[in-house]
């Protein structure tokens, strides 16, 4: 508690855009996207263009404020994530993905984490009928493919950024570990970190675990009350969600969140109430769910975060051409 929540000073846009570090990072980002699209298309996915605004958006974001806009006299939201639309999109195709922009007015306590932007992009994937096991394997294969592509096609950029391609040997060759949230909490307690068992891993705790890893790993089974209503609650273990995070090694922290989804109308309504909201605002989504949406699993990979990790950057803002940070006015 009581850490200084200082926002870093951003360079002038001209200085930032002409910096070799920015250019290298953005070229890597382009390479990651190319690889992801190729991989997903080869695996039968349809890319859809994501919505930017809607009457509701993802409420499941730690402490962040949504941006309201006046839409012909109605309150609309900029997407904090397109999760609700991803589920609905499965009515059109069984396997979909977006490269989706998200805006979240993050709390000041995230200013110094080095891994929060208020505007960022996610590679958003959703698969009808998939279990968590299916989707974890998909992520592992996808991330491995993206890393391999960068190592082979962007060797020069990595070298210019001072990033040793050997950092990805483990990622490319070894299966990702999976630990439950409860185990992560135990490990943190052993390390002397006071992590709450009922909450998401806090930033310092996550950094501790991340710092001890040599390749990305999954944390599964987060407790209910730590995530959005759309993450499915285990029927066998009430209070435990069928969800996960992918954590990067070397202290880079969370790259991706995902879950099996709630698709049953009554369960969705009860879960919305548990987040304190009046379900009425989710009218379109609930009507769709009442008529039936496919059971699914999916995830969103933070593209700037992944770029930061692959490029070995100090902070995530370096992986954005026009970075926006908490409380800072910038282009």
């Amino acid at each position: 508690m009581n850490t200084p929540f200082e926002t870093p000073q951003l360079p002038h846009p001209r200085q930032h855009l002409t910096s070799p570090v920015t250019r290298g990072a953005l070229r890597l980002q382009g390479g990651l996207l190319t690889a992801a699209r190729q991989f997903l298309r080869d695996n039968g996915f349809t890319e859809l263009l994501p919505p930017i605004i809607g009457p509701v958006t993802d409420p499941g974001n730690r402490g962040a404020k949504q941006v309201d806009i006046d839409y012909y006299g109605h309150r609309y939201k900029l997407m904090t994530s397109a999760i609700l639309y991803k589920q609905a999109s499965l009515l059109a195709f069984d396997k979909i993905f977006y490269v989706a922009p998200n805006v979240r007015l993050e709390p000041v306590e995230t200013a110094g984490t080095g891994r929060h932007l208020t505007e960022f992009h996610q590679l958003d994937v959703e698969v009808a009928g998939a279990t968590r096991e299916d989707i974890l394997q998909l992520i592992e294969d996808l991330v491995r493919h993206m890393a391999r592509h960068v190592v082979t096609e962007h060797a020069e950029d990595l070298e210019q950024l001072g990033r040793d391609p050997g950092a990805f040997t483990d990622l490319i060759n070894t299966a990702f570990d999976r630990i439950s949230h409860a185990t992560a909490v135990e490990r943190l307690h052993e390390l002397g970190h006071g992590q709450s068992p009922d909450a998401e891993l806090d930033w310092p705790g996550e950094a501790l675990l991340s710092g001890k890893a040599s390749r990305p790993f999954f944390v599964t089974d987060y407790p209910k009350g730590s995530r959005g209503f759309y993450d499915r609650e285990s029927l066998e273990h009430p209070g435990v969600l069928r969800n996960f995070d992918l954590i990067a090694p070397e202290g880079y922290g969370e790259l991706c969140s995902g879950s099996e989804r709630e698709s049953d109308y009554a369960r969705i309504v009860a879960r919305i109430r548990e987040t304190g909201e009046n379900p009425a605002k989710y009218a379109w989504y609930l009507e769709t769910a009442r008529e039936g949406i496919p059971a699914s699993s999916g995830f969103g990979i933070g593209l700037q975060r992944l770029t930061r990790y692959i490029a070995g950057l100090d902070a995530v803002w370096q992986a954005s051409a026009f970075p926006k940070l908490v409380g800072t006015v910038s282009p």
Binding site: R62, G63, E109, S196, D198, G225, S226, E274
Partner: peptide, 24 residues
């Protein structure tokens, strides 16, 4: 306005979500 619907589980989870979302 609505008083809001509460059960013991709804109250418990709302509190946990507050602690999760606003840790400070």
């Amino acid at each position: 306005g609505s008083p809001g619907t509460f059960t013991d589980e709804i109250l418990r989870q709302q509190i946990r979500l507050m602690r999760n979302n606003f840790p400070h």
